[in-house]
Every structure is written in structure tokens, then in C-alpha cells.
């Protein structure tokens, strides 16, 4: 898919992601279930609308869908392998 004029970076929605994961998440990596590429969440494409969609920076496949209702965010879907290991 090509909507390059519309998206920002995962880093740009770090505040919303921090609300959901209660920690800074943009340096964590995700392995795409479609193309197998591994990329930091901050390097993913982020699409803002009624909610938030994260897509693989290599192939554009879906990584996360987040719905918003008022002040609360509700994760609807996470896809691929999220590598959340953090160094001590």
C-alpha cells in the first residue's frame, strides 16, 4: 500500500503507545509476520485517524491497531513478534 503522504513514524506516536504499554516502547523491535523484517517500533509507519495503525516499514503489513474512545485507548490487535526484552 502506498499512503506515504499520510503517515508519520512510530516514534511520533510514542506518547500514545506509552499510555498503552506504560513504558517507552519505540526502541523495542517487532518482527513482521509477513515479510520477516525486524524493525524498531519507532521506525514503523504510523497512521492516525479515529484510532492508530502501525505498519511494517518494509512491506506495510499490519503491526497494530489501536482504537480510541474518549481519553482511553483500547488495543484491538497486535500482530507479528514484539521483542520487548529490555536491557537491565
Amino acid at each position: 500500500m502506498d499512503a506515504s503522504g499520510l503517515h508519520i513514524d512510530g516514534n511520533g506516536v510514542a506518547g500514545t503507545l506509552e499510555e498503552i504499554f506504560t513504558t517507552e516502547i519505540t526502541v523495542a523491535e517487532r518482527i513482521c509476520q509477513s515479510c520477516g523484517s525486524r524493525a524498531p517500533i519507532g521506525a514503523h509507519r504510523a497512521y492516525h485517524g479515529a484510532g492508530l495503525v502501525l505498519r511494517c516499514p518494509a512491506c506495510g503489513d499490519l503491526g497494530a491497531r489501536v482504537g480510541a474512545l474518549g481519553d482511553h485507548h483500547h488495543v484491538l490487535e497486535l500482530r507479528g513478534t514484539w521483542v520487548l526484552a529490555r536491557s537491565p
Binding site: S4, G5, L6, I8, A46
Partner: peptide, 28 residues
């Protein structure tokens, strides 16, 4: 966003490692 997209493509075409190019787009 269009500026960042354009420059990131140029950098990778020049041979810079994609993993060492970090981007921040303003968006719409």
C-alpha cells in the same frame, strides 16, 4: 512527511544502511 520520505530514499540509494537512518515525520 514527503521531505523525509524523499531524503530517506536518497540516503538508502546512496548506500547508507537503513538501520542507521532514523526519521521523524511531521505528518498531515
Amino acid at each position: 512527511t514527503p521531505f523525509v520520505e524523499h531524503v530517506a530514499d536518497l540516503l538508502v540509494a546512496l548506500g547508507h544502511e537503513a538501520g542507521r537512518v532514523r526519521t521523524e515525520r511531521f505528518g498531515p
